[in-house]
Structures are given as C-alpha cells and as structure tokens.
Amino acid sequence: MKPTVQIEYCPKCGWMLRAAYMAQELLSTFTDDVNGILLKPSEVNGRYSISIGDKLIFDRKREGRFPEIKELKQLVRDIVNPDKSLGHSDKK
C-alpha cells in the first residue's frame, strides 16, 4: 500500500497556504508513489511537521526553520521511492 504524507500545520499562525503549496509540490512529484497528502490543522500552536506514516521526517521546532521544497522532496523520495530521480532537485 502506498504511504500517505501528512503535513500538520498551525492554522492560527497562518500556515495553511504554505502547507497547501508543499502538498501541491509533493503531489505533482510523487503522483504514482503516494496514496495522498493529508493537511491536518494542529491543535498545538506553532506546529509545522511532516510525516509519512508513523515516521516524522521534518519538524519546524526541531529544525528551527521550514523545509525548503527541494529538501522536502528529497526526504519524501528517500522513503517512498529511493530510486526515483528528482532531476535538478536531486542531491549532488
């Protein structure tokens, strides 16, 4: 079964559009590799985290920043389809 990527964001912080943008980028890149992207409003203020299944792959508070889209695509690729080429977004 294909995994679902979850983006949990703080609606009070106004991060829904950022979450939607990242979901769009991930869906266009991983159309055949994921079941879908779940946007989940958080009940915890300031939260912005991204997980695949039970695995947390990025947490804004832990990292002290938001992920760059190139970085996020690499993190997701490494889990859902490690052999997939990301073209210009790939690691050097």
Rank of each mutant, 00 (worst) to 15 (best):
A19G: 06
A19S: 09
Y21E: 12
Y21W: 13
Y21C: 04
A23K: 15
E25H: 02
E25Q: 13
S28D: 14
S28F: 06
S28R: 14
S28H: 11
T29I: 10
T29Q: 13
T29V: 13
F30N: 04
T31V: 09
T31I: 10
D33G: 04
D33T: 04
V34F: 04
V34I: 15
N35W: 04
N35C: 11
G36D: 01
I37F: 02
I37K: 04
L38P: 00
L38N: 11
L38M: 11
L39S: 07
K40M: 09
K40N: 10
K40C: 05
K40Y: 02
S42F: 05
E43K: 11
E43R: 12
V44L: 11
V44Q: 13
V44G: 00
N45P: 06
Y48P: 05
S49C: 12
S49E: 14
S49N: 10
I50H: 07
I50D: 01
I50W: 03
I52F: 05
G53M: 04
G53V: 11
G53K: 06
D54I: 08
K55L: 13
K55H: 07
K55I: 12
K55R: 15
L56F: 00
I57F: 08
F58I: 04
F58A: 09
D59P: 01
K61R: 13
K61N: 10
K61V: 10
R62H: 09
E63Y: 09
E63W: 03
G64E: 01
G64S: 06
P67W: 03
P67I: 07
P67S: 05
P67G: 08
E68M: 10
E68W: 08
E68R: 14
E68Y: 08
I69Y: 05
I69M: 08
I69P: 01
I69H: 05
I69D: 11
I69Q: 06
K70F: 00
L72V: 09
L72G: 04
K73F: 01
K73S: 00
Q74I: 14
Q74C: 08
V76C: 08
R77I: 07
D78V: 02
D78M: 11
N81K: 13
N81C: 14
P82K: 09
P82N: 09
P82Y: 03
D83G: 01
D83R: 13
D83Y: 10
D83C: 01
S85Q: 11
L86H: 08
L86Q: 07
L86S: 08
L86D: 01
G87K: 11
H88F: 11
H88I: 12
K91P: 00
K91S: 13
K92I: 11
K92N: 10
K92C: 03
